[in-house]
């Protein structure tokens, strides 16, 4: 896939589809260690051992139609091409954690792409009763969002309200600009 952020959205959608009420997304970029690590942890329904093995195996698909460039096996392959890997930890009834690592400056590493749109895709989910804690660390700098804090301030006004949605998007865009400016400086 041309952008890692599309894989991130797919992981978040997996967690939402698994009925999670708590999702944690962590992105860590460490230029000194030359490492990029993406972690998505949820408290959704989880997978038994057999499903886990199938989910990251090369030929498992519950689908019959096209499925281009996404899913856990392809993400695993992308990470391994970059001297990294994918670890899957899951327990039925407890939740699932997916951790993917890449050599950050590896020539084959896809760019992060539009993480803000990825976050908006998840934040605008029609599912109710879930929260996302998101943190992006770039060396010693950090940016993030905890939807439970936002919801607390918003009361009955949903995250999907047009005015709130626009505010959130510009909040995220500004946060990212600053994160990368600080990181470069």
């Amino acid at each position: 896939m041309r952008e890692l952020s599309l894989h991130v959205l797919d992981l978040l959608e997996n967690s939402l589809a698994a009925g999670a009420s708590q999702i944690r997304l962590g992105i860590e970029e460490d230029t000194r260690a030359n490492l990029l690590v993406i972690t998505v942890a949820d408290n959704g329904r989880g997978m038994d051992r057999e499903t886990q093995a199938l989910a990251v195996g090369p030929f498992y698909t519950t689908r019959t139609t096209r499925h281009v460039g996404l899913g856990l096996p392809l993400l695993k392959a992308a990470a391994e091409r970059c001297e990294g890997g994918l670890e899957l930890h899951s327990e039925v009834g407890v939740g699932t954690t997916v951790r993917v690592s890449f050599q950050r400056d590896h020539i084959d590493r896809a760019p992060m792409g539009d993480l803000v749109s990825t976050l908006m895709g998840a934040l605008l989910s029609s599912r109710r009763g879930w929260d996302l804690v998101f943190t992006h660390r770039f060396d010693q700098h950090e940016f993030g969002l905890d939807t439970s804090e936002a919801r607390e301030l918003l009361g009955d006004v949903p995250l999907t309200h047009p005015a709130v949605r626009e505010w959130l998007e510009s909040y995220l865009r500004q946060g990212y600009e600053e994160l990368y400016e600080q990181g470069a400086g």
């Binding site: 896939m1 599309l6 959205l9 797919d10 959608e13 589809a17 689908r63 139609t65 096209r66 499925h67 281009v68 460039g69 996404l70 899913g71 539009d114 749109s117 990825t118 908006m120 895709g121 605008l124 989910s125 949605r165 626009e166 998007e169």
Partner: peptide, 18 residues
């Protein structure tokens, strides 16, 4: 915004809508 949707470009379509 399922896997097939994302693979087919649904995120960029959503962005264009916003």
């Amino acid at each position: 915004m399922g896997t097939c949707g994302i693979a087919a470009g649904a995120r960029d379509t959503m962005h264009a809508i916003l």
